[in-house]
């Protein structure tokens, strides 16, 4: 079943009770009326007039192309409460809470600059400047380890199971770009 049964923003919200009961409907949440708070380190949410959802996990549905839109709210055991199409109309505090929580959950390191790449056999050693600081990591067997989920978006997977992303190759400095292109 395709997920686009209802056009985004066309408002299944007015008919919330049905939308929630109908397993085929995409259940959009209204960012303006959603109440959020953090308790005991976990996110708690409530829609007006409904009981509170505890221990809510935020999941990006399209993490590469739309990191701040299409955010699913999941409960324990992965049950979906609903989807925030975007954060428009959300109070500043709530918005900050959502962004903080996303930041907490998504730990993929972002590469700002590639400093060097050294190949030995099919082992590549990379040194890069990232948003977390400088790092060296090793990739192996090139084709599987450097993926391009979107044009211009690159993800490295290193031998230890860590991932490093470059969201936009075009935004890299020329030296980094050259290093990357030599290997792709």
């Amino acid at each position: 079943m395709l997920i686009f049964l209802h056009r985004p923003g066309q408002g299944c919200l007015g008919e919330t009770p049905t939308a929630q009961n109908d397993p085929e409907a995409v259940n959009y949440l209204d960012p303006a009326t959603l109440e959020l708070r953090r308790e005991d380190g976990r996110l708690q949410c409530r829609l007006p007039g409904q009981s509170e959802w505890t221990d809510v996990k935020l999941t990006r549905m399209f993490p590469h192309s739309l990191p701040q839109e299409w955010i699913a709210l999941l409960g324990p055991f992965g049950k979906e409460y609903g989807i925030l199409l975007n954060l428009h109309g959300m109070s500043r505090e709530n918005r900050d809470l959502v962004l903080q929580e996303l930041d907490r959950r998504y730990l993929t390191t972002r590469i700002v600059r590639l400093l060097s790449s050294k190949r030995r056999f099919d082992v590549m050693k990379w040194t890069a400047e990232t948003t977390r600081g400088r790092v060296s990591f090793i990739t192996r067997g090139l084709r599987d380890q450097i993926q391009q989920p979107l044009p211009g978006y690159v993800i490295f997977s290193d031998v230890e199971g860590n991932r490093y992303e470059i969201p936009d190759i075009a935004a890299l400095d020329p030296a980094s770009r050259r290093l990357l292109e030599e290997q792709m």
Binding site: D40, G41, R42, P63, R104, R105, Y106, L107, T108, T109, E160, G161, N162, R163
Partner: peptide, 22 residues
């Protein structure tokens, strides 16, 4: 995603102690 957090409960409150990569 690409990492984790180590937590414990103390005095009925949850505490995140450390964070680490995958």
């Amino acid at each position: 995603v690409d990492g984790g957090a180590f937590e414990i409960k103390h005095a009925d409150k949850r505490h995140e102690l450390l964070r680490f990569t995958a």
